[in-house]
């Protein structure tokens, strides 16, 4: 049975990257605890609009944990605290108690400037991806699926790496503002497959160079990223990226 809870929501308002920003507060009454966190924010926005106030801006799209758009730092944890990885859109109000104060902040990292309120600019990730996160394929007749045999373990591992949705929670959690978990997952998803090996060295170098250029920090292996990743990416990916990068540089 769903029960209703009342709580205070403390949300970040900021007019663009240069604005100092501040918190605003609102008391929310009788919210059923099977409401999703984003639905709760929709209710908040309806109330704000009815009061003639400016609604609270946040990113969201699929609302089913696959697109990577939602990105809220809730009570000190990216995507909010759950036992197993989940995105903000997969967080439900039953995680909270009656009378709580819930603090909502944007991802705070120099490489992710605030666009408005809790919506941040994550186009840096697109640029890293564009620098090498692909395989060059001559289009034409698709080849037979069994033409290149891939061990099941490798295929699974590559798939796990590919489930990174590019949400940026890893950067948000990292005290160094490092994007290594994202970049290493994107490098790994190809490095593990024969089709990706062809450009592996070039890819590792290009993506790391882009990451550095865009102002992400140096990874110091604190593991804060893997603790908050909604897709449970492992820092084993980071070791793999280091390996790929070192191999590529030593071969130069």
């Amino acid at each position: 049975m769903a029960k209703n809870i009342s709580f205070t929501i403390r949300y970040w308002k900021q007019n663009g990257p240069k604005d100092a920003g501040h918190f605003e507060e609102r008391r929310m009454h009788d919210i059923p605890d099977d409401t999703s966190f984003l639905e709760m924010l929709d209710i908040l926005n309806e109330e704000l609009i009815n009061d003639g106030k400016e609604p609270f801006v946040f990113d969201h799209d699929c609302r089913e944990g696959i697109c990577g758009m939602c990105s809220l730092y809730i009570n000190g944890t990216p995507h909010g605290k759950t036992e197993r990885g989940a995105t903000t859109c997969q967080l439900y109000m039953r995680r909270f108690n009656d009378g709580d104060t819930i603090t909502v902040e944007p991802w705070r990292s120099a490489a992710f400037p605030v666009i408005k309120d809790c919506m941040v600019d994550r186009s840096a990730f697109d640029k890293i991806q564009a620098a090498g996160g692909y395989t060059t394929i001559r289009t034409g007749q698709a080849q037979d699926a069994n033409a290149i045999l891939i061990p099941k373990d490798d295929a699974d591992e590559a798939m796990d790496c590919a489930t990174c949705i590019g949400c940026g929670a890893c950067v948000a959690a990292c005290k160094n503002g490092s994007a290594m978990l994202f970049v290493s997952s994107k490098v790994s998803q190809f490095a593990l497959l024969p089709q990706g090996r062809v450009e592996a060295a070039k890819r590792a170098k290009a993506m790391v160079a882009k990451m550095d250029e865009l102002g992400f920090g140096n990874c110091t292996n604190t593991r804060a990223c893997e603790a908050v990743c909604p897709k449970s990416e492992s820092i084993a990916n980071i070791a793999r990226l280091n390996r790929e990068f070192l191999k590529a540089k030593l071969a130069d």
């Binding site: 920003g21 918190f23 730092y73 009570n75 000190g76 944890t77 605290k81 603090t103 902040e105 705070r108 990292s109 120099a110 490489a111 959690a173 990292c174 005290k175 160094n176 503002g177 490092s178 102002g215 992400f216 920090g217 140096n218 110091t220 604190t222 593991r223 804060a224 893997e226 603790a227 908050v228």
Partner: peptide, 20 residues
């Protein structure tokens, strides 16, 4: 470099995950 990458704004609330 890492402090710069972190940016000037700090989180108001931050919870440290157990495995860190």
């Amino acid at each position: 470099q890492n402090r710069k990458a972190r940016g000037a704004n700090r989180y108001a609330v931050s919870a440290k995950p157990d495995r860190v």
